[in-house]
Amino acid sequence: MSSGDQAGTITPEDTLPAGGTDGPETTAGAPAGKPRRRWLRITLISLLVLALVGVGGVVAGGFYLKSVESDIDRVDAFDGVPEESRPEVVVKGALNILILGSDSRDPESTGGSRADTIILAHVPKDRSGAQLVSIPRDTWVAVPRSKEGRGGRDAKINAAYAWGGLPLMVQTVEQYTKVRIDHVLMVDFGGFKEIIDALGGIDINSEKRFTSIHPPFRTFEQGKQRMDGATALDFSRQRKQFADGDFTRIRHQQQVIKAILDQAASGGVLANPAKLNSFVRATSSAVSVDKEMSLVDMAMELRGLRGNDLTFMTNPTKGTGRVGSESVVFEDKNKAATFYDAVRRDAVEEILSTGS
């Protein structure tokens, strides 16, 4: 996936899976379920920030990290984004990182240009933790007009990527949240299989027993279980068996991200050079970053963070419904305004108390 992935006359319906959230349709007022190279390049969702955060500063291989960074894919995330349209920086030193994910190996993938996972990661100025906010891909927002003349109307938020690549996606998220984005990370979640296998598997707690809709139709038991890469990736893709559809998929992705970070930061991985190197190399093919991001600096700044320091949240919503023929997610405008105002001001206690 790259900032140039755009189809000529593509529309949101062309790039997004049919059925929107795949959950039961409700009215706008109905409640919705709450939903390359070193450690940095792996996130689900959030993902990159997490992996980079957890392992990056623990290993004292500065030269190694620099060599990894020199080979990382770089993308034009802010090219063409009008400066006058961008929110102001409110708190210097706080970081807001946009994490975009696709799953090129998803059995339901329709191909084309899209962002299946959208996460706004806020790292406070004091680096005490990180809050990762998942924005459902079907959230109905105003999409600005791209320099090619696409957009300029309300649509599902991930239509912005189809219409104008990374710059329009950045502009859309900034316009929606009023939060200035400092960096962008792009992840191919299909690559998580190799990452998880390099770690020797991860532990996931399933909320209920259910069967995958994809071959080989695995059955996931309720409770804690060890998963290899293929199993964990399958778990993170499921949504049609759950009443709140895509919100469950978001929660499962968040679980996988946290489990990867916890496993990557464990003594067994850090103390085993071969396993650590396999992990780093596996992540290298799954991530791209913007041209200004320094993985070395980021790793050093975030070296103390672990899974327990991360809080996963979901964009405030009122529920799902329809706009014409499209199944969409409606934001809770009042709650969203209060929540993102706290993010702008780096008011962590307010972020935690107003988020969901």
Rank of each mutant, 00 (worst) to 15 (best):
D5C: 15
A7D: 15
P12F: 15
L16G: 09
A18M: 10
G19R: 02
T21N: 11
D22N: 11
G23W: 01
T26F: 07
T26N: 11
A30C: 10
P31C: 07
G33P: 01
K34Q: 12
R37T: 11
R38N: 10
T43F: 08
L44A: 14
I45Q: 05
L48S: 11
L50W: 01
A51V: 04
G54L: 00
G56C: 12
V58P: 09
V59Q: 10
G62W: 10
Y64R: 03
S67L: 05
V68C: 10
E69R: 11
R74W: 02
F78E: 04
D79E: 11
V81Y: 04
E84N: 08
S85F: 09
V90Y: 09
A94F: 05
A94C: 09
N96F: 09
I97L: 10
S102E: 10
S102N: 13
D106Q: 11
P107W: 11
S109F: 02
T110R: 14
P124F: 04
K125W: 07
K125Y: 05
D126L: 06
R127D: 12
S128Y: 10
S128G: 15
Q131I: 14
R137H: 09
R137Y: 09
E148T: 05
E148I: 01
G152I: 13
R153G: 06
D154T: 08
A155W: 06
A162D: 10
W163M: 12
W163N: 06
P167D: 03
V170M: 01
T177Y: 02
R180K: 15
D182K: 01
H183I: 05
H183R: 14
L185T: 00
L185Y: 06
G191E: 05
F192K: 02
I195W: 00
A198K: 02
G200A: 10
G201Y: 04
G201K: 07
I204C: 12
S206A: 15
K208A: 14
S212Q: 01
P216C: 03
R218C: 06
R218F: 14
T219I: 12
F220D: 02
E221T: 02
M227F: 12
D234Q: 15
F235W: 05
R239P: 07
R239N: 02
K240M: 08
A243K: 13
D244F: 09
F247W: 00
Q254R: 01
I257K: 03
A259D: 00
A259H: 08
I260V: 15
D262H: 02
Q263G: 03
A264N: 06
A265R: 13
G268N: 15
N272H: 04
K275L: 07
L276G: 05
S278I: 00
R281M: 01
R281V: 04
R281C: 00
S285K: 07
V296R: 11
D297H: 08
E301D: 13
R303W: 06
G304S: 15
G307C: 03
N308R: 15
M313R: 03
S325C: 00
S327K: 14
D332F: 00
K335M: 06
A342Y: 07
V343N: 06
V343G: 07
R345P: 05
E349T: 08
E350N: 12
